[in-house]
Design a protein around this nucleic acid. Structure first.
Length: 171
DNA sequence: GCCAACGTTGGC
DNA sequence: GCCAACGTTGGC
């Protein structure tokens, strides 16, 4: 029953901006996923990402981009207040309380990989080679991952299934 | 640092 | 509503 409706996502972050290590150091190992300013990614955050979903944490725009860790969604879409703050980096003057435009979710640390999975690692794997993140020109910072891809990442990355325990707890 | 790919903007 | 110009993303 548990996990039946769980979906999986890959979320990109530039580590100099917000890294997986930053998430692990955050209070409660939880942080908001703010600053998304792309409408397609916004729609995922606002409409589709749900509490309990799995997240692959991806470091982008560095010498060796890679999936570096696991997270889970602990709060579904709500207005991204950084769009309302004129001093914030991602301030959007069009956004207001009545029309926040931009949304974010909260994610929590959910486990490490034994090793990061680079783009070459992904390309070499028959399942992971099909991931959206490898598609040339793909700039979506929030993108869906299939269940098959999720479990392949756990296997190749040498990670424990962060949801296995709660599934056992249900039996 | 380069540059291809993409999303957004704005003139018409 | 078209589309050229522009800014950004992000791998390489």
């Amino acid at each position: 029953m548990v996990g039946q409706n769980r979906r999986y996502w890959l979320m990109k972050s530039e580590p100099q901006c917000f890294s997986f290590e930053d998430l692990k150091k955050a209070p409660g190992r939880t942080n908001c996923w703010d600053g998304v300013r792309n409408f397609q990614a916004r729609n995922f955050l606002r409409d589709e990402v749900q509490i309990g979903d799995g997240v692959l944490f991806y470091h982008s725009n560095i010498s060796e981009p890679a999936i570096v860790g696991l997270a889970k969604v602990v709060r579904a879409g709500y207005p991204d207040h950084t769009a309302l703050d004129p001093r914030a980096e991602h301030f959007d003057p069009r956004a207001g309380d009545a029309n926040p435009i931009w949304y974010m979710v909260d994610v929590a640390y959910a486990g490490d990989l034994a090793r990061p999975l680079t783009r070459d690692d992904l390309r070499r794997h028959p399942v992971l080679a099909g991931m959206d993140v490898l598609r040339k020109g793909n700039r979506l910072s929030v993108q869906p991952v299939t269940e098959t891809q999720w479990f392949a990442v756990l296997e190749v990355g040498g990670a424990l299934d962060p949801f296995a325990e709660e599934q056992r707890g249900k039996t």
